[in-house]
Simulated assay, not measured.
Amino acid sequence: MEGHPEPASADSPALPLAIANWLMVIAGMVVLIVMVGGITRLTESGLSITQWNPVTGVLPPLTDAAWQAEFDKYRQTPEFIYEAGPAGMSLADFKFIFFWEWFHRLIGRLIGLAFALPLAWFWIKGAIPTGYKWRLLALLSLGGLQGTFGWLMVRSGLSGQMTDVSHFWLSIHLLTALFTLGGLVWTALDLRALHRDPASRPARLTRLSIATALVLFVQLLLGAWVAGLNAGHASYDWPLMQGQFFPEFDRGKGIGWALTHDPFLLHFLHRWWAWVAVGMLIWLARRVRRSERRASVAIHSAFGTQIILGIATVMTGVALWVAVAHQLVGALLVAATAWGMHVAGRREQQA
């Protein structure tokens, strides 16, 4: 395994800045797919495509017969039998939800190509700085895992009497995407530092960064479970829930079950753990303000906007585009936090 990056010689073919810029483009594509994934979830489109065809699935149905065949497959799913069918669904309705799932998968394929092909080119040209090949391969592997987790998530909603995907698989799918996003931003920042100074070493995680990441992870996990269980509909008022601060929830199956399944309790926890996350993010932002003011501003802007959108999502009854914006800014918050954590790591190295 390769060690830390070594100083590049004057005639080195390494292209750290070009690779960093490429990774930032990929990061932007990941933000886009997270947003489209939110639309897919909120429009109940995720189970509209019942098979995973990596090659032939690139094209949507092109004939009326092909559309009808896809619709017939969907009509055999529990979601259609127990929810969509009784509510009434036309072929035109099906085409709408099919589009969002197809588009979501298409972006995933494009991200894979946009990562793998330039990576191969940089590799062949010897342009990857020493010590970064393993990290780029790890990011590529995370992308592959993301596709696998996405299919396992879809498959969880196609059997038995499930009318939705498993909220556990949904959280794994989403959090893997956000972890990948953080890794892309972090690696790009390391490479930009290497471009400025060939003797630069990768930034390290500080204790504050680790604590902030763990608190934010819990909040993102809670958000994913809230989405997967449709728990955003548990209450449309704020700060109270149905007229009281602490909501009634099902204690009959034990607190462990309630903490992972009860929509009222999870909605409550997602609301108020957010302020713990805000506290940690403020702490991180203040620590990096002198070293990189832009990172501090990005963190403050992201969590401030996210809090407002979270409240608006509740009070609008989970209006589609407000909820989508909430998920989009959540992804941007992860990117901003990774930026701040990277600055903190460099600041500690230089102290």
Rank of each mutant, 00 (worst) to 15 (best):
K133H: 14
G131F: 10
G144P: 08
W134S: 15
L119G: 01
G143M: 02
G143L: 02
F122W: 08
Y132P: 06
G144D: 10
G131S: 13
A120Q: 03
L136H: 03
P118D: 03
L145W: 07
L142N: 06
S141E: 10
P118F: 00
A116Y: 00
G143P: 02
L117Y: 00
Y132D: 06
G126P: 06
A120G: 06
Y132W: 11
A127V: 04
L119V: 00
S141Q: 08
L139N: 04
L142P: 03
A127E: 15
K133L: 07
S141T: 14
L145S: 09
L140N: 04
A116K: 00
S141N: 13
I124V: 13
S141H: 00
I128H: 01
A127F: 00
G126L: 07
L136A: 09
F122D: 10
L137E: 06
I128V: 15
A138P: 02
L117D: 01
K133A: 08
T130I: 08
L145Q: 04
W121Q: 11
P129Y: 05
P129M: 10
L140V: 03
W121M: 11
G144M: 09
A138F: 13
Y132M: 13
K125C: 11
P118G: 04
P129S: 12
L136E: 06
F122K: 03
L142D: 05
Y132K: 09
L137H: 09
L117G: 01
W134P: 06
I128P: 02
W134K: 15
I124K: 14
L119P: 01
P129Q: 10
G131Q: 12
L117V: 14
L136Y: 01
A120D: 03
W134M: 15
G143K: 05
T130Q: 14
L142C: 12
G131A: 13
P129R: 10
K125G: 14
L139K: 05
S141L: 15
S141I: 10
W123A: 14
A120S: 07
K125N: 10
W121P: 01
F122Q: 07
I128M: 07
Y132I: 09
L142Y: 03
T130A: 15
L145P: 02
F122H: 04
A127C: 12
P118V: 00
A138Q: 12
G144I: 05
W121G: 03
A138H: 09
P118E: 03
G143Q: 03
G126Y: 03
K125D: 09
L140T: 02
W134Y: 09
L137A: 15
L136W: 02
L136R: 02
L117E: 01
G144A: 10
S141C: 15
I124C: 06
G126S: 09
G144K: 08
I124H: 12
L137K: 03
F122A: 05
L145C: 11
P118C: 07
T130C: 11
L117A: 13
S141V: 11
R135M: 10
R135A: 10
G131N: 12
G144Y: 03
L140S: 07
L142A: 13
Y132V: 07
L139T: 04
L140D: 01
L119K: 01
G144T: 05
G143V: 01
P129W: 04
L117R: 00
L117T: 00
G131M: 11
